[in-house]
């Protein structure tokens, strides 16, 4: 099949794949401690923390495990564990 090539690219999630595979450390939210302040959502360089209504979840498909969320959490509600 002939591939049509135009000199533009179109937006897509996972342009370089599921970057969750890069992860060495994994952030885990402690639901008891979380006060839903959304700071982790604000600081996440990836947009890998999903904000649903006023709750948050981590999109492990894309989280690269930088640990900013854990470092910045004012309640220490995010634990960093070794990815297995």
């Amino acid at each position: 099949m002939r591939e049509k090539i135009v000199p533009i690219s179109t937006p897509a999630k996972g342009a370089v794949g599921k970057t969750g595979f890069w992860r060495t450390f994994k952030p885990i939210i402690d639901r008891e401690k979380c006060i839903k302040c959304l700071l982790c959502w604000l600081y996440c360089p990836e947009g890998a923390i999903l904000r649903t209504d006023d709750d948050i979840t981590i999109d492990y498909d894309y989280c690269k495990g930088c640990g900013i969320c854990a470092n910045e959490c004012p309640r220490k509600a995010i634990e960093i564990v070794l990815e297995r």
Binding site: V6, P7, I8, S9, T10, P11
Partner: peptide, 11 residues
């Protein structure tokens, strides 16, 4: 392929 906010493409 034009820069247009209704059609966000990367050149």
């Amino acid at each position: 392929f034009l820069l247009d906010i209704e059609n966000p493409i990367t050149m």
